[in-house]
């Protein structure tokens, strides 16, 4: 049975040291760079024609743009459009990392808690900084829902604070766990196939079942890869909305 955890191992391609910090170029970094290059190609080279009637690649770039622009406009509001490049970058980066991770032999950078936690904390602190910068202490109204009896506030305010503080946890673990679980499951079924074929004879024919399963799961993982990027961007928008409009 192949080790389903092995695929998550970080391999140092180039040992680097930056002021005492381990900045080695790893397989994770490689796929991050690939994602940046591909996204840039799609959105810059793909738009190269600047055609009035777009070709396929330009359509994809424009659809991505409008998809995220509408999301930001609908959830954060028109005043939130200055965060559009931020949300767009987050969405495209996670989407490409997730999708690239599905390529055989590729590394899924978003299957590491450090990456997803860093992204979630980036959003978390952006929300706090923007919230206080925009509303001053009025940002604290976020924890005091209006229209609630005073006595209940004693209960509600701590709950709101805890839920606010736990946001980066759920935000990061959701993406991380989905990627991790999906890839482990894929690897387990893939492992069954090689194992059954390896034993040979009648059992090799049974390998068709885990193979079918792996195929179906791959399709599901494509959906999950998109969905998790979408959910991450969507939650980012909702948190940014809180930062701009803290009153419930």
């Amino acid at each position: 049975m192949p080790d389903p955890i092995h695929q998550f191992e970080i391999k140092r391609i180039l040992e680097l040291d930056l002021f005492g910090i381990d900045a080695s170029f790893t397989n994770s970094a490689l796929w991050m760079v690939v994602a940046v290059v591909l996204i840039s190609l799609l959105t810059i080279w793909g738009m190269g024609g600047r055609a009035l009637v777009p070709n396929r690649l330009q359509s994809v770039a424009e659809i991505s743009y409008e998809f995220i622009a509408n999301m930001v406009r609908d959830i954060v509001g028109v005043s939130g459009m200055k965060f559009f490049p931020f949300v767009f970058t987050i969405f495209m980066f996670i989407l490409f990392l997730n999708m690239l991770g599905l390529l055989p032999g590729a590394f899924t950078a978003t299957s590491s808690i450090s990456v997803t936690a860093a992204l979630a904390l980036l959003v978390f602190f952006t929300v706090i900084i923007v919230g206080f910068a925009k509303n001053g202490l009025g940002f604290l109204k976020l924890f005091v829902p209006s229209g609630i009896p005073k006595i209940l506030l004693l209960l509600v305010v701590p709950i709101e604070i805890i839920s606010f503080l736990s946001r980066p946890v759920s935000h990061s673990v959701r993406l991380f766990a989905n990627m991790l679980a999906g890839h482990i499951t894929l690897k387990v079924f893939g492992g069954f196939v090689t194992m059954l074929i390896g034993t040979g004879g009648a059992l090799a024919a049974v390998a068709i079942f885990p193979l079918t399963m792996a195929l179906a799961l791959t399709a599901l993982e494509v959906l999950v890869a998109f969905l998790q990027a979408y959910v991450f961007a969507m939650l980012t928008c909702m948190y940014l909305h809180d930062a701009l409009h803290p009153g419930h």
């Binding site: 994770s28 970094a29 940046v36 959105t43 495209m92 992204l119």
Partner: peptide, 29 residues
């Protein structure tokens, strides 16, 4: 032990991507 290299490169790639998107790609689209 693997967090540092991942985070360093996450920062590099994410900031690069953000600058490319915000300065070049998105205004063009």
């Amino acid at each position: 032990s693997t967090f540092a290299p991942q985070l360093v490169w996450l920062a590099i790639t994410f900031v690069t991507l953000y600058i490319i998107m915000a300065r070049v790609a998105l205004p063009r689209i």
